[in-house]
Amino acid sequence: MNVLTEAATEKALVKKMNEINYKMVGQDVSVYYGDKRALFDVNLGVRDNTVTALIGPSGCGKSTFLRCLNRMNDTIQSAKVTGRITLDGQDIHDPSIDVVELRARVGMVFQKPNPFPKSIYENVAYGPRIHGLARSKPDMDQIVESSLQKAGLWNEVKDRLNEAGTGLSGGQQQRLCIARAVAVSPEVILMDEPCSALDPIATARVEELIHELRANYSIVIVTHSMQQAARVSQRTAMFHLGHLVEEDDTDKMFTNPNDQRTQDYIMGRFG
């Protein structure tokens, strides 16, 4: 490939990227845990109002990448992140960015439901409270109600808001965690295998919810289940051994992937 065409392709790529509304973009993102390198120069964008699924076999780096997006890797002492990640064009590693505000804009739902051992109300109200989002008590009630509604939990819990969040069923707990994430009005929601600890019915409920949330948020979901990726996402990114193998429309990925490894993984040849 000569230099000219390479530059031209580059230009075309940049043009294409400008056309699409990217909420977050990772460029050459690498992660090291001590001496071990867990992620190799990943370039991946998260589009507005889109569900992006990250798939791949265990230990492929998909969760690691997800945790880069709201800098949760900061909490692991040996972890080092290089490359550039932007949120609305702003570098999230910029010293002027407060990681706390970043996490308010990029919410997260974890693999295992982890409600605080407090009441349902307090679980949802915690985020708005520390960010000072409510001006008054009715304001706060309003935020809690609408968040629980968005998470599809309101009707089930509206009469027992003062009961402990840990007393809910697994699926309800996970939706409570989603309501908690939604309550601080994030722009992006990261979900790290949100259904892996849930039964099929609860899973279906959460997937439905993801579908509804898409209208207002950009969602990135890590999942082990190919079916789930196919059901909930519009874009899919395949990771393998710390590399981004390919990223494309979900329909295309599951019918006609470019890369043999994606093909093999989807067919269940390894996992």
């Binding site: 706390v100 996490r103 804009r105 919410g107 997260m108 982890n114 915690y126 520390i130 994430a181 601080v184």
Partner: peptide, 18 residues
């Protein structure tokens, strides 16, 4: 205290101190 509690708080944008 399990780390998931810390993660949950950090996930909604609490600082480590919070």
């Amino acid at each position: 205290v399990p780390p998931s509690i810390r993660d949950a708080a950090l996930g909604v944008g609490a600082s480590r101190m919070q």
